[in-house]
């Protein structure tokens, strides 16, 4: 019973976080009539999945009435290559920096870290110019490139700090066994860093999936991610607002990140514990 205050506090905190989500869920299950005439907090009288099916397959967004499903696919087409590129490049860069072969390597790392503290909005315009000069503006490649660059500082930090904690003797042993730079990375270091990979994967997935501004700026027509579509749907100024459909659409859009977190949960926690995000 001495723990009662503790559980009370935790329950209140959890409720505060989950309450908006519950309201969204309950609203998405109501028909429009019930929303317009009832209280926002009332539970659905007559629960229906109609809003969910409409949000997924029928809602009209930017002139096509095929719901979020199209954009959902777009998001995956963006996230998967961007995730792969930023993880592969970040892990390799982090590994190279962790070797600290010369004093200026640490300075290079410090320079890279500055990238962590500059919001993407600041470098948006130069990035647009860069991508345009590369001839990639308005293509999937351009968007993937932008995401990779923006994620690089963070992913590199994660991997570099983890690899730094790997005993030096292991690297020496690999060198004596005849493994070069890449072989050591592939056979020894990368398998060790699986928990860190999980952390990077979850955080980068969440970041790229939830991104709005890069998707809006760099994606060509018909390639925009689900976040952009959601904004179009919910931000529409014309006609009647279908709150139930908006809520359902929002939850659909948020579902993948929740799933990724839950699926990688144990590894994720191990990665955090392994010091992946310690300074």
């Amino acid at each position: 019973m001495r723990r009662l205050p503790l559980y009370l506090m935790l329950s209140i905190a959890a409720l505060m976080v989950l309450f908006p989500l519950l309201v969204m869920l309950s609203t998405s299950l109501k028909p429009l009539d019930e929303i317009n005439h009832g209280s926002l907090f009332a539970l659905p009288q007559d629960p229906t999945l109609a809003a969910w099916t409409k949000a997924w397959g029928g809602a009209c967004i930017s002139g096509t009435c095929r719901g979020l499903s199209v954009w959902f696919a777009n998001s995956f087409a963006i996230v998967l290559p961007a995730l792969f590129c930023s993880l592969a490049l970040g892990a390799l860069t982090g590994y190279a920096l962790s070797l600290r072969t010369a004093r200026w390597v640490d300075m290079l790392f410090a320079a890279l870290l500055i990238g962590l503290f500059i919001p993407p909005q600041v470098t948006l315009y130069p990035m647009i110019v860069l991508v345009r000069e590369m001839g990639l503006f308005g293509t999937l490649g351009g968007l993937v490139f932008a995401h990779t660059v923006w994620g690089l500082a963070f992913v590199t930090l994660l991997f570099r700090n983890f690899f730094l904690s790997v005993p030096r003797d292991l690297l020496k042993a690999a060198r004596i066994d005849g493994a070069g730079f890449l072989a050591t990375f592939w056979h020894v270091m990368l398998p060790l860093s699986l928990p860190v990979c999980a952390v990077a994967l979850v955080l980068q997935f969440t970041y790229i999936w939830n991104d709005f501004i890069l998707g809006l700026t760099f994606a060509g027509p018909g390639q925009q991610p689900v976040t952009v579509a959601l904004n179009v749907l919910a931000g529409s100024q014309f006609g009647q607002q279908e709150y139930n459909v908006n809520m359902a659409a929002t939850m659909i859009a948020a579902l993948p990140t929740i799933l990724v977190y839950l699926l990688s949960g144990r590894l994720f926690v191990r990665g955090i514990a392994a010091g992946a995000v310690k300074g």
Binding site: D169, L170, K172, D177, A183, H187, P191
Partner: peptide, 26 residues
């Protein structure tokens, strides 16, 4: 040459078999 370390420096993710065969594989 071959070297044995104080910390053993075995590759944690590899089985004993793969540890022992790693240099030969390389």
């Amino acid at each position: 040459i071959a070297m044995v370390f104080q910390s053993y420096a075995l590759y944690p993710t590899m089985s004993v078999r793969r540890n022992m065969g790693f240099a030969l594989k390389m």
